[in-house]
């Protein structure tokens, strides 16, 4: 199976938020009460009921207000930090299209995954189970486009074979974010400015502590435990125990 990807061209986005609504509809996610924060951006962040969100980057340019929009969601990393830290195999997993989906029946509610994610994506629902964009794995398996992509009126959101999307963008002279990071992201962005302006890490990577925990401490820990058991056993059969002569107790004169 060829790896699939989203291609999100932020220059085409009008912030209509059809994608937010279509996702809620397909995934049966409830509407949420929000407050007016003096911005059209709404809600302000991903929530357990919101798998994708249009972020407004509002730039004050003298008399002008410049708006940048970006559709934020799970990036479907090939080298996914969430999968790395999840203790329950199969709760988060790569589909055969290379997207990162989840199985709530296997989720043990530990809430580790958001800490492994370089993009702060996973959220936890009322049952304390993991939720996030799963690339409409149910639709894609049946040959349909993801709901958000289908709803997007400007084709800012596209979904398809990763190689082909990259080739097309290159041919159109567009620079891509996420082509090679973390083994290649499953969400490629065409940006109108620096990644930092969109609050994206310039070089996304698994957080250093998480890498050290899972790739150094864990293997060395297992080795260390059995090493200690081995050393103790070896000591016992070579040097041997520190015995004391029991028959020679100070007051031990011919039995008690």
């Amino acid at each position: 199976m060829k790896r699939k990807s989203f291609l999100i061209d932020t220059t085409l986005c009008t912030a209509c938020r059809s994608c937010q609504v279509a996702c809620k509809q397909w995934n049966k996610l409830d509407a949420e009460a929000t407050v007016n924060r003096g911005s059209y951006e709404n809600p302000p962040d991903l929530t357990p009921q919101l798998y994708n969100q249009i972020q407004f980057i509002e730039q004050d340019k003298g008399d002008d207000l410049q708006w940048l929009f970006i559709n934020r969601r799970c990036m479907h990393c090939a080298d996914a930090g969430c999968v790395k830290v999840c203790p329950s195999a199969g709760a988060l997993y790569h589909t055969k299209e290379g997207m990162v989906a989840f199985n709530q029946d296997k989720c043990i509610e530990c809430h580790y995954c958001v800490n492994g994610c370089p993009f702060d994506v996973p959220r936890y629902d009322a049952r304390q189970k993991v939720t996030k964009c799963h690339a409409c794995s149910d639709r894609v398996q049946n040959g349909l486009a993801p709901a958000c992509v289908k709803a997007c009126p400007t084709q800012a959101l596209k979904f398809g074979d990763r190689d082909q999307l990259i080739a097309e963008a290159r041919a159109a002279g567009k620079k891509l974010y996420g082509e090679n990071d973390l083994g290649g992201l499953g969400v490629l962005y065409v940006l109108d400015d620096q990644p930092g302006t969109y609050r994206l890490p310039k070089n996304p990577a698994i957080p250093a502590s998480i890498f050290f925990w899972k790739d150094v401490v864990k293997p060395l820990g297992i080795l260390g435990f059995w090493g200690a058991v081995g050393v103790a056993a070896l000591h016992y059969v070579t040097v041997g125990p520190q015995k004391f002569d029991e028959s020679d107790d100070p007051q031990h004169k011919g039995g008690e």
Partner: peptide
């Protein structure tokens, strides 16, 4: 509650907790 504090503090704590867990195991065996 791994969502209660900042991500950096939680990530570092997860790592330290695992590190001292493994050190404790070795100490315990000895």
């Amino acid at each position: 509650d791994p969502t209660a504090y900042s991500r950096e503090l939680t990530q570092f704590s997860l790592m330290l907790h695992g590190l001292f867990f493994t050190l404790s195991m070795v100490g315990m065996v000895v």
